[in-house]
Design a protein around this nucleic acid. Structure first.
Lengths: 161, 161, 161, 161
DNA sequence: CATGAATGAGTCTTCATTCAT
DNA sequence: TATGAATGAAGACTCATTCAT
């Protein structure tokens, strides 16, 4: 808490004015990060282009984003001990299924348009998200010699024939 | 240390008989995990089949493995604070590049046999590993409702059009 | 640290608010003690009297002082294991040579006045301080039956003829 | 105990075969050191010379001796915390009074022979021993630039007018 | 709102001691 | 005798949290 406070330029005492406890602060951060992710995905519906073009755009945006602290926060929260129960519940609620649901219309349109390979829709979207997630994790590991694969390559997972 | 010791059914004092410090214990675990991973990858060269069949086998083995504690240990070590410097060095040394190097001959043979799509070999292997890594992370998150994608789906990344 | 804190009537946690570590606390004490000793010696120049009278006064003051915790702290720091390097450096810097230098003018004046025996000045002062040091050590050993020698006796070491 | 054992080239387990506890080992060392000191003093009666010559010899022997570990052990035991009660008792029994008693005949002979200044005999011997003790402490502090005063200088304390 | 002195539960680590072999 | 695996009490240190100011 002291480190966070000093990073924020205030006393740790003041932090307790805004957040009752470290857990509450953490839970709030998790909530923000989750909401942030949902926003990012929802915006893809507002850009022009065919479904596959939209997915390509989303993919490259995510892979190029240089602040994945939101993503990493969730990742850590998911895999660490000592995470407050409520944070875990929030993450589960917004879990990969929620994001799958969010993106399914886009992928479905892609299949309908013949741009995206046929097959179980949920599995396809889940796989796509898993892959993105894996790439972001690697990207975050400040290995300067690692360059994430190009979005184009990933689209082979989806592209029809 | 006390938790680890009691989990192991010994006193924490005894832990210090075998490991000079928590850091040393952790570093040892990282080393074991790394070696374990290297072993797993190397064994794929000993099974029969075409390169793509081997890759398919490797993929499904990894995705079905139910103990990914090794993998998660490395993942955590990579992305957490307070990890001993030497552990970080070990991880960097054996980093994704090392595993790319280890698998490149297999993928190259796949390309030569026309089973695997042409293109930058390193990028292809790195992408494949990133994807696997992402899937394992998700799998580890004890979400019982999550079923990892079938290996077959992943191979679309590689398979020659 | 807990003992010190409770002796001081505070929690051990608070001690770490003021001193980063036990070593730092110890080093601070050593510094204070050293400075204290330097002060004590320097004040002798401000009292009236002949050089030998001043030395006699200094001697009896030191031998009568009933708090030699400063002195004992230094003594222990000098002869014990596990003393922080910086404490050792401080003690060496202010070592007996420093105190010899501090007192030399006084003794020189005594020789000039014919009150103090001729001979190597440094050796004389060093011997005088060694003797004082030895007496203080003994005095500190809470042996109630031990009475330190009178200053008068010590002055025989110095007095001319 | 482990350090002592390994210094002695045996296992720490074996140490407990010979000494029931660390305290017992420590007490034994204190006893040995005390006995050693008594021996050293008693031998001075066997050398030829006048009393003052004997004292001069004793003094220079002590100041030249390069192993004062016995002396330092006692010194530490006297001034440290956590020293077993019995060790403290032994030290008190053999305390400076005991050594004063041991040396008194020698000094008395010196006074009778007119070599040593008149005055309270106990005080004179005690002062002499205090001074020696102080010099030994300083000598032990591995300050290579410190040279103890010559025995000759010390004898001024005693020598008759 | 804002600060930081103060607290204490919890964690890593050391080390004297025991005991099966 | 001799070893070293095993134990646990004790001590240094951290950090979330409280509260007087």
């Amino acid at each position: 808490m002291s480190m966070i406070a000093s990073e924020a330029g205030v006393s740790h005492g003041l932090l307790y004015h805004y957040f009752k406890s470290k857990d509450e602060l953490f839970i709030t951060l998790v909530q923000w990060s989750m909401e942030e992710a949902r926003q990012a995905f929802s915006e893809i519906y507002n850009v022009p282009g065919t479904p596959l073009e939209k997915i390509a755009l989303l993919t490259s945006m995510i892979l190029q984003e240089d602040d994945n602290s939101h993503f990493m926060l969730i990742q850590q929260a998911r895999t660490s001990d000592g995470v407050p129960e409520e944070a875990k519940r929030i993450i589960e609620n917004y879990s990969i299924h929620a994001f799958v649901d969010q993106l399914m219309p886009l992928f479905e349109a892609g299949q309908d348009a013949g741009e995206i390979a046929a097959g179980d829709l949920r599995e396809l979207v889940a796989c796509y998200l898993s892959v993105l997630s894996g790439l972001m994790t690697l990207k975050s590991q400040e290995d300067p010699s690692y360059t994430p694969p190009k979005a184009e390559l990933l689209l082979r997972l989806l592209r029809n024939g």
